[in-house]
Amino acid sequence: MAPARTGAWEDRNQENALAKIVVVTSGKGGVGKTTTSASFATGLAMRGHKTAVIDFDVGLRNLDLIMGCERRVVFDFVNVIQGEATLRQALIKDKQHENLYILAASQTRDKDALTADGVGRVLEEMSKEFEYIVCDSPAGIEKGAHLAMYHADEALVVTNPEVSSVRDSDRVLGLLSSKTRKAESGDGRVKEHLVLTRYNPARVAKGEMLSVDDVKEILAIPLLGVVPESQAVLTSSNAGTPVIVDKASDAGLAYDDVVARFLGEERAHRFLTAEKKGLLGRLFGP
């Protein structure tokens, strides 16, 4: 029997190290930030780490839909910041994964409702209870995106192999190295990871799409994983289950690799080459 919603999250001992805060960011919209946040947080929880994932996209919340908990949102991040609800009331415990909690964004508030102070306070409180806090950044480089990255220890920079996405990612890397708490306080730097999504090896082979090496060379940050363009991403979001749960899908396996590598496991990159076509495919294929 799963513990009740108000159950286990406060059990974590305060003498433990503080949570690691990971921002999922990109600058450009529609590249897979929320898909990545949902799968990454779920993957950490599946491996036994107590994890919370926060939607920073005030006014355009979607993480709740991707996580399949949209009907259980009572209080949200802004309510907690403004003291209208406690963290415990607002955190939604995932139904499938014991160690996973979701904090929804407010759908009705103005995005100015997020304040640097308020976000800092809530993250501080949360970091006593969780091992990992995943911050799902909104698109753009305005306030919401800034606050999502500000407290980060590490960053997943989600990028598509496409010119506008790569340029925006580079812009975000500039912000990560200057406009974060770590950068401002001189306390080291935010550790950056490249997550290349919607990768289509067949098009790369034809010279129609930037290759993973191209993107790595331009952005010059370590590659955490490549997630292939996959039908499973849409079908999983239809059902409200993070794609990492679908172990029969290429994208699900790719996200599993991402989480494993993030936690220090050595895993070879895969899904980088197109599947070989049969004779008929080669004769009559595109």
Partner: peptide, 15 residues
């Protein structure tokens, strides 16, 4: 045409 190579060159300049 290898448009990916073109994309890469253009990106290197803007970046």
């Amino acid at each position: 045409k290898n448009t990916a190579a073109l994309a890469k060159e253009r990106l290197k300049v803007v970046v």
